[in-house]
Design a protein around this nucleic acid. Sequence first.
DNA 1: AGCTTAATGCGAAGAAAATGCGTCTGGGCC
DNA 2: GGCCCAGACGCATTTTCTTCGCATTAAGCT
Lengths: 191, 191
Amino acid sequence: MSARATTRPGGRSARVQQSVHQAVRDLEAEVGRDALTVPLIAARAGVTPSTVYRRWGDLRELLSDVAVERLRPDGAPTDHGSLRADLEAWAVQFAEEMSSTAGRTYIRDALLGDPEHGNAVRCSDYAAEQLKAIGVRAAGRGEAVPDVESLLDAVVAPLMYRILFRPSDLTAAYTDRLVATALGRSSTPFA
Amino acid sequence: MSARATTRPGGRSARVQQSVHQAVRDLEAEVGRDALTVPLIAARAGVTPSTVYRRWGDLRELLSDVAVERLRPDGAPTDHGSLRADLEAWAVQFAEEMSSTAGRTYIRDALLGDPEHGNAVRCSDYAAEQLKAIGVRAAGRGEAVPDVESLLDAVVAPLMYRILFRPSDLTAAYTDRLVATALGRSSTPFA
DNA sequence: AGCTTAATGCGAAGAAAATGCGTCTGGGCC
DNA sequence: GGCCCAGACGCATTTTCTTCGCATTAAGCT
């Protein structure tokens, strides 16, 4: 039924899922995203198309799953010694990754999946986790930390809005200004 | 080539475009958006599928065009006597329209079109125009007005981010808080 | 080990996507 | 006003995708 909530996590089902995901990534690099089709992916993965249709429903859901995995952060945000420096560095990196052609494609694919499936909210959760980690670290230094929701509103949302709706203007100066705005207001001790 | 930049605005081409758009709207209401196909739409519009493929390229572009038209604001924002009241009313209405199931579908469809086609940026322009109108009116009253970019960052972007990535929590209290935040800072005399 | 259940493979049928070619409409020009 | 050309359209065809039923295989459990 669901690709992620596989009732049988081990064994063949897991191998099939991994194989199909890998096939998507490989073919995406080889023939381009727009040339992807279910039969093509299935052939590369060594499964039959009907298996893909059964497990993911359609190509969109499959691409949505793969895109979300690609958007998962690699590790904890790097430590730059202060809340502001950490946020600026993270925001700049976030903007760069997401505004690239590949990044925007992943975001759009992730958004395309069934909303009930939760792929979109997962993207937001990734950013929230990173911001939370930065906040916890800053709180450990004794700094006042704005809560995650405020940071999502003040930093992540404007970046994402421009990436999705106005694909052009995104400079480091702009992200720094967003961080400055976020830090200039609404700083609760810790959340 | 492009559906909107039709080289022949008058005559049959215009009728075809109108007929196809109307067919999309009708069928969307009748059979649901996910059941739409090019042959189905073409049959309803009284044209052949190849015409649709030639003019729009694929179903996504067509749906993107129709979605953008549906997202076009009806008229000027209503006047509530003050900048804050105007913004709050507009933001609440914006949030309600966009967060509905239909609204979210239109946004996603609009985002899906070819970025070069400019459907996404058109959505942003619609919001910017409305905000600009509110700002001009407020400036006429002598109020200090934040520039449109700030309002996009502080109000529109957070709303859109939540609509797209966290489809659940959107209250009037939240939109009011966004407006309050936007008005509390960065108020240039006029732009 | 044997049993139950679920997931996969396979093949066929139905539907949709995409393309090539001939025709016709519409707008510009004489 | 009539002619001409570029572009748009309809039709037919081919290719590809999608769905479905049934047989088979593998995983999980006792």
